[in-house]
């Protein structure tokens, strides 16, 4: 009986959670005139015209490719640099460690609006404007600190005796880290990868400032649907539905790592 009550609450929560997304899906399958003219709980005349436009118009689909490119680069850089740093913070005491740890997070705390102009100047000095690497690097500003913080939390949950035992058993640091330690914190790595992907994917201000055409992200392309005749809600909704897909795939791949969690039995 108790388990049933839990399930009902959970299903009700998911029902509410999915409503706005359902509405977006509903709109994406209708024409703009139909959306503005009638209230309808489900699409009566289903049309795929909005999706077809996105898949055939290169100014639309290239936005997705650009976003996926810089988001992937960003996630890889963030994880690779944050893993050793998080290990250092969770295991070692060193000069300035706590200051450094908190400083990292302060980079998420500045209001973006006024920082955009100096950002543009900095990246044009290096000739990086309108490249994928520029956006990936700029997003490191908030993703790397986040990755360090999340990973540090997970690593600190693992007793240090484990490291000591492994070193006594003759593991070198790299082999210990890759073969013993990484499997233990894979829940953390999975969550971190997802969060880096997510925050980079939805960020608009930096991505839009640092790109013009070649590396233009999908979120910036979508603001284009605002025209003199008003918004094209159908097209915007279809694009919105498609922006969910890559991230949903990412979480599908990391879900087992999140769910399995702590596999202490391995050592």
């Amino acid at each position: 009986m108790k388990i049933k009550k839990r399930t009902i609450v959970l299903i009700f929560y998911f029902f509410l959670l999915m409503l706005p997304i359902y509405w977006m899906l509903n709109m994406s399958l209708r024409t703009n005139a139909d959306i503005l003219g009638n209230f309808s709980l489900y699409p009566k005349d289903i049309t795929f015209a909005n999706y077809i436009k996105i898949f055939t118009d290169s100014s639309w689909y290239s936005g997705y490719i650009n976003s996926i490119l810089y988001v992937s680069i960003n996630t890889i850089i963030s994880l690779l640099t944050a893993l050793p740093a998080a290990y250092a913070f969770s295991r070692y005491k060193f000069i300035g460690d706590s200051q450094m740890f908190f400083w990292l997070l302060t980079n998420r705390m500045a209001p973006a609006a006024v920082f955009l102009l100096p950002f543009f100047q900095l990246y044009s000095t290096f000739g990086l404007i309108d490249t994928h690497i520029a956006v990936a690097l700029a997003h490191c500003l908030f993703n790397v600190p986040l990755a360090v913080w999340i990973l540090e939390g997970f690593m600190s949950g693992i007793p240090r005796e484990l490291d000591e035992t492994a070193y006594i058993d003759g593991y070198s640091f790299p082999s210990f880290f890759i073969f013993v330690f990484m499997p233990l914190i894979r829940a953390g790595v999975g969550v971190t990868a997802f969060f880096c992907f997510m925050f980079s994917w939805v960020e608009l201000l930096f991505a839009r400032t640092l790109t013009t055409t070649v590396a233009k992200p999908i979120a910036a392309t979508m603001t284009r649907t605002v025209s003199a005749t008003g918004l094209d809600w159908g097209l915007l909704s279809a694009a919105g539905i498609l922006t969910i897909v890559p991230g949903a795939l990412v979480i599908w791949f990391v879900r087992n790592h999140m769910a399995k969690g702590f596999a202490m039995g391995r050592v």
Binding site: L17, M198, V202, L204, A219, T243, I244, A248, I251
Partner: peptide, 13 residues
């Protein structure tokens, strides 16, 4: 997967 969906929509959207 369902939980992650709202997080993946760009903020302006």
């Amino acid at each position: 997967v369902l939980m992650a969906l709202p997080l993946l929509i760009p903020w302006n959207v």
